[in-house]
Every structure is written in C-alpha cells, then in structure tokens.
C-alpha cells in the first residue's frame, strides 16, 4: 500500500479522440525518480501526459497517482506539477508576478509563496530576472520559468512534456541536470522524442508508438536488447542507396569516396565455412539459419559496435514492426 502511494499506476487505459484511438490499453507503473517516455511525434506521449495532469479524461482503464484515483482531479492537481510542451505566460507580467499569480491559484498562502518563489528562482538561475517582464525572456529562460512554476507548490509528481525542444545544447544540459536534481524526492515523468535527453537522465523508460506501449524497462535492458544488432561499415558512396534500402541506417559519416555507416539489422555478419571471400569481406547470414539472403550481399569491413540509446530505441521500433523511414532514396 505504501509503495502504491509513491507511484503512478496506469492500468489498461484507453483514450479516443472521436474515432481515433490515441491510447491503446496502456499498462504502466511509474515509481519515484526520473522516468522517460519516448516515442515519435504523434505516438500518444502528450495525450498520456495530459491525462495524468487531469487535462484529458480517459475512456477506459484506471489511473492512480500516489494512491489517488485520477477522477479526484482537485486532489491530483494539488500534488502534480505540469510543464506543457507549448506554453507561455502573460507577456506583460513580471516573472515574480506570474509565479505569484499561479501560486495563488494553487491556494498557497502569501508567506509560503514568497519563500518558494525566491528559492525556485535561485534554483533555476532566474533571480536576476525577478522583475523582468515575461516577454523579455529568452526561450531557455521561459523553460526554466516553466519548471519553476511547475515546482511552485512542491508537487510530489512532476510531468514535463518535451521540455528541451528548441533549446541550445548548453540550455538543454542545464535543464536536464535541473530535472535530475528535482527528481531526488519525487516522481518526474519526462516525455520526449529526443533520445539523448532520456539517455542522460532516466533509468526507467517506456516507449510508446501509435498509442501502444511497445516497451518498458530500464535503459540498460533496452541497450542489452539491441546488443549485437548494431554495425558499422565503411562503404563506397555508390553503395549508400542500397544500404539505406536494406538496413536501418542510424548514422552516416561521409568521407571523400567512402561513407562510414552505422546501421541496425537482425542479420549477423560472419563468414561461414567454405565461403570463398576476398580478404576483409563478410557475408550476411540470418542468425539461426543456414543461409543468408543473397540480396543483402556483402558489406566489406562490417563490424558490430556497442549500441547507444538511439540505436536501441530504433531497434525496438523495428523489432515491433514499426515502419522506419531510412532516408531519401
């Protein structure tokens, strides 16, 4: 019971927009710490986030947040902080006024508001901007102000939807670190399609695609799943279209006449006994099968590499039959 009071339990949740099903039987438990929700655009991440933030109603299933059923919206709002993907604040209000206004709407007493606002502005490095108007803030500053407003009433759950989109690398790193800090004593759900953000911050993740939960577990489990499936090879430029057609290419580094490609495949590369191949050539054979598909041909110098989170995510999508567009033909 105590454990249930410290986690979000989502069981068999369905959500429709008209006839379109946005969430299909989603079943997930999210514990304390950073939790990453990964998926393509339109996968249903924002719908799930909004449902957890009481901005949408589910059609079927059960959700409880720290032991409180989601139907008790007022109570949920009291313990949840939400940073939406697309937001701003009254442009003519100052940073302090905006936070004070939102704090009042959260039912916080004046003294507590002042104390929390000062503390949070320091934490998000906006103390110097206290009296600046919101319209004068940069994109990164607005995001940091967004996280400050979400933490204002000291919520037990923080829901952050695509927070790093449009930020420069430095701001992104600062923002990710900030999220990790606040996740020490609360549940933080980070929804994004930027795999690097997840890799850098989350231990537990879930992958959504087309409203369905494809995968849930730890980042290391996801990486383990893709082990031995990621290869790199240096190929002539002329071979690139064929490679892009036959494999899931996750990286390309162009040289003068050659391209170093990083790709995913279920095929294993290795020479079978009796193969009469030139030095450096390998032949593709399907794991567990006797003969490979000759159409895949031979890739000179292909060798396995350790998967990163992006490779593992792509492989997971591929493994579940999701169509992956490799690039222009």
């Amino acid at each position: 019971m105590e454990q249930k009071n410290n986690c979000i339990v989502i069981s068999h949740v369905d959500k429709y927009y008209g006839k379109k099903q946005a969430l299909k039987d989603v079943d997930l438990t999210i514990g304390q710490g950073m939790f990453g929700l990964l998926g393509r655009n339109g996968a249903g991440k924002t719908t799930l986030m909004k449902t957890l933030a009481t901005l949408h109603e589910k059609q079927a299933g059960e959700i409880s947040v720290c032991g409180i059923p989601i139907s008790h919206a007022r109570e949920i709002r009291g313990i949840t902080g939400y940073l939406p993907q697309d937001f701003s604040m009254y442009p003519n209000m100052t940073v302090h006024e905006c936070l004070d206004y939102l704090g009042t709407l959260s039912g916080m007493p004046k003294a507590l508001r002042q104390q929390r606002i000062s503390m949070l502005l320091k934490r998000v490095n906006l103390s110097g901007k206290k009296k600046s108007r919101v319209k004068s803030l940069s994109g990164g500053m607005k995001r940091r102000l967004g996280i400050a407003q979400a933490l204002l009433h000291d919520p037990r759950v923080l829901i952050v939807d695509e927070p790093t989109a449009g930020l420069d690398p430095e701001e992104r790193i600062r923002f990710r670190n900030l999220l990790c800090e606040v996740a020490e004593d609360r549940i933080v759900i980070l929804s994004t399609h930027i795999v690097g953000d997840i890799e850098a911050t989350c231990e537990n993740i879930a992958i959504l695609n087309d409203g369905e939960l494809l995968w849930k577990g730890t980042v290391s489990q996801l990486l383990e799943n893709a082990k031995g499936k990621v290869y790199t090879a240096e190929i002539p430029v002329s071979m690139l279209p064929r490679v892009k057609r036959d494999y899931i290419v996750t990286g390309m580094l162009r040289g003068e006449r050659t391209v170093t490609v990083r790709f995913l495949t279920d095929w294993e590369y290795g020479n079978a006994e009796g193969d009469n191949l030139a030095a450096g050539e390998v032949k593709a054979v399907r794991r567990g099968e006797d003969n490979g598909d000759s159409s895949h041909g031979l890739l000179p110098g292909a060798r396995t590499v350790m998967p990163n989170c992006e490779d593992a995510y792509m492989y997971c999508l591929h493994q579940h039959g999701c169509e992956i567009v490799g690039g222009e033909e």
Partner: peptide
Amino acid sequence: QLDKRARMQSLIYTRKSS
C-alpha cells in the same frame, strides 16, 4: 481570451483552484 492568447491555459487549468 487572455489565457489562450498568452498560451497559459494549461498552466492555469492544472492548478488546484476550482
């Protein structure tokens, strides 16, 4: 219309006030 124009609806909707 101000909340919508300022894209502040979600921030206000998720507050505790009725």
